[in-house]
Design a protein around this nucleic acid. Structure first.
Lengths: 144, 144
DNA sequence: TTTATTTCGGATATTTTTATCCTATTTATA
DNA sequence: TATAAATAGGATAAAAATATCCGAAATAAA
């Protein structure tokens, strides 16, 4: 469904959110340990999230990654997925046709649209805040 | 969402179904042309479908791929997806956690389940027959 | 200003997916 | 039985995704 890069990106963002609520910055090393991902690869993904202004990176000593506590609730999964996997999940044809729309649909166009709309709704209506709070409350986990 | 191999597999199966309704066998060459896919790669996927008894392959002169006209209605997309991409789409965690269930869920477990169940329902309730008939009626297309 | 710490980003390596090529095997038919 | 037409399948290649490495740049603090 999502690429590995995207999975890591979502989990990393959630972990950064958790820590930002407590005013703490985190390093790629900590993040990778906490979400069980390869460190250098995760660092690349964090760069992409930073370039897209989804997370903030502070270089130099005592640096790290953080989020603005006040905007964590406004960040939706859709932004992260789009920043890393692009918008093929929204626009791409389920069977890979280059041109696939109402006027020239692939065989599963309508049926696939239902699924994709559900996914889209989920991504656009799920915030980092709720996911981070759920983890803090012990309701969900980032690894194992 | 699906791998290229799976996209080709679905489209190939639909094309074989269309032709089987007319009692015609088709070759990997014809199939690849009709679904706009690489021929040799498509042939590999057809082998996989044949091994899974989803399509029938007849070797030798006048051979080709065909389907039993009477069972085309019973073949669901789910079988094809499972034969090619396995069942990760059903069982895999949305964020890649090795262990992800009700007792140890990832942060998007419940939300993701809704999407996946919708996809699963769609795959399990869509037959090759209806897709093939829709194409014959000009309601959908296999390429471009 | 120097040093230690930390992200940035280019280069490279590995793995997986996608794609191609060629020969073997099967089969209908002349 | 010989031949032509087809799929089967192993070997290989190319491309994309995943992963690693290392020096450059930035920054806080001594």
């Amino acid at each position: 469904m999502f690429s590995k890069a995207c999975e890591y990106g979502i989990k990393a963002a959630i972990f950064i959110a958790i820590n930002s609520f407590e005013g703490k910055r985190v390093s790629p090393k900590e993040i990778a340990e906490e979400i069980n991902s390869p460190q250098a690869f995760t660092a690349k993904i964090l760069q992409a999230l930073a370039r897209n202004n989804i997370v903030y990176s502070i270089k130099g000593a005592h640096g790290g990654f953080e989020l603005d506590k006040k905007t964590i609730g406004a960040i939706k999964l859709a932004q992260i997925v789009k920043a890393i996997d692009g918008d093929s999940i929204y626009n791409g044809c389920g069977l890979g046709l280059q041109k696939c729309d109402e006027n020239h649909p692939c065989p599963v166009h309508d049926k696939f649209k239902l699924v994709r709309d559900e996914l889209k709704f989920m991504l656009e209506n799920t915030s980092l805040e709720e996911l981070a709070l759920d983890i803090k409350a012990g309701g969900s986990f980032l690894k194992t």
